[in-house]
Design a binder for these strands. Structure first.
Lengths: 338, 338
DNA sequence: ACTGGCACTCGGACCGGTGGAGTGCCAGGG
DNA sequence: CCCTGGCACTCCACCGGTCCGAGTGCCAGT
């Protein structure tokens, strides 16, 4: 195990590098941090840290920069989560309180997060499978055409058109609507399938086909929409990325456009607590030089979706984590209120 | 007016510059185009073109590059719209045909357009004000809480929560729903206000307040949602922008995030026919070095929304315009079918 | 009106020298 | 045993100078 001081050296290196964006040398370190030892000693420590793979030199006779492994150790052992200042908290509150509907909440959240962290923000829409049902509506658009509308407790609305095999009376429709709602309102989406399983049996023979069709579309919607929506903001912050732009920034932009990739990334994050994925831990090649800080948020205790930021591995982890956590909490509150 | 040959020289300059991204000199021009004159003559023509403001030199003794004014002349007089190759047409067809709902259509369109033009694509959702009403639904979520759902002929769905002053019976609600639909279904959104104006008068005194509230929310929705949604894609193509990245790309990314700006930009485009805004013509500062090619699309003859691309002023105008036009047509077809 | 020739300009690439920051190692001291 | 100061070494970044070529403007000649 590394000695206390070596860990301190690593912390100092990470902090300085994040601040200056330049490799940090032994002399500069002793000047800017009260390590209580000489540069020579620090050099020895650095040699050890390098051997262990926590730091690296871009080339001989240059300062050191942290490796992914170094950042990992930093966030796991050396860094806390920096709480936001109270003006910041107030700003979040004010900004989010003005939202009028779910789209607006999500939109504001993503802008807020991007502004706060000065990085790329990613916010996932509340998931259907984890939400509960507020209302199910069936509309007869035409004799053999029904629209299904699903409303969640988080305010999300999904609609589907259904072509029925045969005509379906308004009375039967109202009947189905009532029975459906009495069974599923307030229940979690995940539980819906078994709750409606035996519903067709209780209908007249002639209507069973249509009822089944409607139900199958309903279930389909639940599954399909596991393919979630998400919103991205703050891509302009990518320009603060590094010096050698085109090569660094391009794959990141490409990755950001593939929502599937991002959703998978967010999905891998733990449900509760914050997840930090650093550099190559991300699997996706384009994001090899980025870190992802993600956290779940929800209207209750349980997470209904994730949000987070994508930034260079060289980022201010404590500050970013603080901002992400704070935003997630406030969004949760807002959703719970509505 | 400029002589025929001088125009030809300008065309050649634009074409070469778009291809090579480097200032083009007189000698290179005569070699790559059959102008039938010597470099010296071309130089004289260039001097004239420069004096008129169509081209400029980055510095003395460098080649010329077109100015915004030069591009303007090029697209107005010298360039046609390049039709797509038939494999491209087929690819569009195939790609768009797979779409399942409006979100999917828009999503696919933006990706397609970005890929085809290798630039940033912008697609506006079909506007409410120009669409027609397919259905209006009112749902009683709670005794004094109603949800309003609007469905358009383009498949778009908008919903709003309404807090009523007092309880509102299911019967009254059904009544309102029926009368509302009988008046507005099939009508254009823009006409809705006057169609429902006198509706409250035909209700019982006690219900009039609530009816008015519902109607005012309906009208509000029509107005508010003139603030349209749009989707952006292909931002990774910005990396092909120029050589001096951070400064060029940053304001563009910022502008792209301000949907309001983009919507205004699209709004300024003519309803029918294609609009090309070049460089400083764009008004918005961040887009001073970009051109915007936009066109309306719709399910019928009339445009319900716009789509287009944003790219460097140095872009392949004929090709881009061809792609934009073709995509708009196909999207229109798809919407008409659904 | 076009052309060939010529002198001129300017930026970009190439080059070698220099300075400084940083390192590794080692011998000496607490 | 760990820390320290000293020293030689390395390598990048910067600077100034030179050279080259592409491109221009102008002019005299056809």
């Amino acid at each position: 195990m590394l000695s206390e001081r070596r860990l301190e050296v690593l912390r100092a290196i990470v902090q300085d590098y994040v601040g200056t964006e330049e490799p940090v040398g032994s002399k500069a370190l002793t000047e800017r941090h009260r390590l209580g030892v000489s540069p020579a000693t620090v050099r020895n420590d650095m040699a050890v840290l390098e051997e262990e793979g926590f730091i690296a030199q871009p080339h001989t006779s240059a300062g050191r920069i942290p490796t992914d492994k170094g950042y990992r150790l930093f966030v796991d052992k050396l860094a806390g989560v920096k709480p936001l200042s109270s003006p910041e908290r107030r700003a979040i509150q004010n900004f989010l309180d003005g939202a009028v509907d779910l789209d607006d909440v999500v939109g504001r959240t993503v802008r807020l997060l991007a502004q706060l962290t000065r990085q790329v923000a990613v916010v996932q829409y509340p998931s259907l499978t984890r939400s509960t049902v507020r209302h199910v509506e069936l509309l007869a658009l035409a004799p053999a055409r029904v629209m299904l509308v699903l409303i969640t407790d988080t305010g999300r609305v999904e609609q589907r058109l259904i072509d029925c095999q045969g005509p379906f009376g308004e009375a039967s429709l109202a009947d189905l609507r009532a029975r459906l709602n009495s069974r599923v309102v307030g229940r979690r989406f995940a539980d819906v399938p078994q709750l409606v399983q035996d519903l067709p049996d209780s209908f007249e023979q002639e209507d069973r086909g249509t009822v089944s069709t409607v139900l199958s579309v309903l279930l389909e919607t639940l599954v399909e929409e596991t393919e979630e929506r998400l919103v991205i903001g703050g891509t302009a912050n990518l320009t603060r990325f590094g010096h050698d732009f085109p090569l660094t920034i391009r794959p990141v932009l490409e990755a950001l456009e593939e929502h599937v990739v991002l959703l998978k990334l967010l999905g891998e994050a733990k449900d509760s607590g914050m997840t930090v994925r650093i550099g190559h831990e991300n699997a996706h090649e384009g994001l090899a030089s980025t870190s992802v800080v993600a956290v779940g948020y929800g209207s209750g205790d349980e997470a209904v979706a994730k949000l987070g930021v994508v930034g260079p591995t060289r980022m201010d982890y404590p500050g970013t984590m603080g901002a992400v956590r704070a935003v997630a909490r406030y969004v949760g509150q807002i959703l719970a209120e509505s």
